[in-house]
Design a protein around this nucleic acid. Structure first.
Lengths: 348, 348
DNA sequence: TCATGGATTGACACCGGTGTCAACGTGCGT
DNA sequence: ACGCACGTTGACACCGGTGTCAATCCATGA
């Protein structure tokens, strides 16, 4: 078995196809790349040979010749695994049946070497493009870096971060306003707010949405009804303890993400408050946690998977056999998901 | 700027290093790869040139020459995003400072074309190795596939799946036994069990651990005290409804993962049962959900990140500058995390 | 009838590494 | 002084594609 026949079944190369079809390898290359100016008969002959041999181009060779890897990178430093994975899924949905591969690259936003790491990575791997998730998508240097290295990029965010060709956003602010309007319509007047971490665009957007709703209803937002959080469970619990110790205490609280909302829940339960009887609660993200807690959490669903699809299509639409979104699409709607954690306020 | 100087600052190649050091490119290649039989002076000269130019080998060119991509793939079809991401993190910890890249490849276990997909992917990308997560790691065909394509692989599981060189496992069964022993020691006699999906090794292991504890204590396990689940929230809720409608009903329930445990919680709350006063509950995974629910869930922590490190080291230890585990390490301990969801049973 | 030009196609170098094998210089035994 | 083995190095082809440019073919107009 080891000797005898020459290379029993190695993968066919462009040369095999060329000789099988009786043309030069360059012509095969033209067929693969769908170049103009090939006679129909030649093209067909080559296509037949490709089919007959089951030929698939070697991505490594192309990468070397073109100085570009047929891959896109997902750059992220997102604490929420579910979010990242939904994005992955969306991107993979989009690039399925294409010749592209996905590489995932978590980075450390707190490291001073972060930009250098990214630069080295792009330099090494030479991907076609990068999709950058929040919060690091908010740093303009990353876009600049990609530009300077000739790597296409799309920044994902809660609000426009770049020109439309380079951003995909969801309508967070509007969705938050809508959620708060619902609370107000139910009769809530004292609504507390748990902020996301400072310096995050998404956090700012959610807060703007909150203030918009309150202002539109002519309701005051005393400073102590806003508590600082950092998107993590513990910070939500602390913020909740703070807000619930106020007098009069809020009858509803909007937390800037589900994890912090779960923390607020703990704070409420610690004080023997019932949800939603004594306190209405709204989160943001529609993470698994939102359905797992009791009562299940009213929240805002981020269209993450669709955003992944859209981001990928924006980035490498020219490589994809089909698209779901038109190319000038940018904003995807976040929507309110009503569950069991809200109710009219207790009659005072 | 566009004309004038020739290639202002392209990336240096092996040729640049070679001429800078006054040697042939092959010699540079030898230095890069740490080959034997180079004179010290030559090696030093080349190393200086490399440093001076800031040369980094081009992975695409190597991939072409060697017919191998300097990357490892994470193959998974795991419903739990957190689990997958923790694995990613572990793997990335291990391959940091190496020249390897990580590609993530989710697959669809239910698709009949799954194996073909994987084969095509490996054929295309030609990674050095693959790390395969449960549940697909339990399918022997994947190991066989990797073997036949010359791709190294490590299968991750809850019990030995292959020879030690190809598996990394956690001690799930022992940890479950320990958890149940704790319940028994608290005084519980009627303990319900929510099974994981059929055909999953991890599900079988957890069930074995449960039975081992019960048997050791001489406690019966009536068949209707075991309910079928599929690792998803909804199935946990259904199973919980079933178990809690029994008479006498169990005073404690072990759910084979946290998500199902959250479902059981919902079932308990629906019946106005309090946890842990009326029902003790234990989950498995230590997912974010376990800390977010109220009361927080006693669960078993899977050493996922460490398993990622170990799997990567097992797979490509020869490429890594340093290792954390010795090469014959295989089993990593899962450990019980005690939280607020268990207590002695109510006095009848 | 022959020059002209556009449409097709191929020859060849190149991308940046690695494998093979021969060539070189050195120290040794005789 | 010579042949030899060995340690060290380089020349060259090759991995499997793509870019450049020239060669070929055919139809057209003078």
């Amino acid at each position: 078995m080891s000797s005898g026949s020459n290379q029993p079944n190695r993968k066919p190369t462009i040369n095999d196809v060329a000789s099988q079809a009786g043309v030069s390898k360059k012509t095969v290359s033209r067929v693969i790349n769908g170049s103009q100016g090939l006679s129909v008969t030649t093209r067909e002959r080559v296509e037949q040979a490709i089919l007959a041999l089951g030929y698939v181009p070697n991505p490594q060779a192309r990468a070397l010749a073109l100085g570009r890897n047929f891959a896109i990178v997902l750059l992220h430093d997102n604490p929420n695994a579910q979010t990242v994975q939904n994005f992955e899924r969306g991107i993979l949905d989009a690039i399925r049946h294409s010749e592209l591969a996905l590489m995932v690259r978590p980075v450390d936003r707190r490291s001073p070497a972060m930009l250098d790491d990214v630069a080295a990575f792009l330099q090494q791997q030479r991907p076609i493009g990068a999709i950058i998730l929040p919060p690091i998508s908010e740093r303009d240097e990353i876009g600049a870096l990609c530009r300077s290295m000739g790597v296409r990029f799309v920044r994902v965010g809660s609000a426009a971060l770049d020109d439309d060709d380079h951003s995909v956003t969801s309508t967070d602010r509007i969705a938050v306003t809508e959620a708060c309007r619902l609370l107000i319509a139910m009769g809530h007047r004292r609504i507390g707010f748990v902020r996301g971490p400072q310096g995050f665009r998404s956090a700012a957007e959610r807060e703007l949405g909150f203030h918009a709703a309150m202002e539109a209803a002519g309701l005051p937002v005393p400073p102590d009804y806003s508590a600082q959080g950092d998107y993590r469970f513990e910070s939500g619990r602390s913020a909740g303890r703070l807000l619930l110790s106020l007098d009069p205490r809020p009858t509803a609280i909007f937390a800037s993400n589900d994890e912090m909302a779960a923390g607020v829940m703990h704070a409420a339960f610690e004080r023997n408050l019932q949800i939603p009887r004594d306190l209405s609660l709204v989160g943001f993200d529609d993470s698994p946690t939102a359905t797992h807690v009791w009562p299940s959490l009213t929240t805002v669903r981020w269209p993450i998977r669709d955003m992944g699809v859209l981001a990928a299509e924006k980035l490498v639409g020219d490589f994809l056999p089909s698209r779901r979104f038109s190319s000038d699409f940018v904003h995807l709607p976040s929507e309110l998901v009503e569950r069991a954690s809200i109710a009219p306020p207790p009659v005072a």
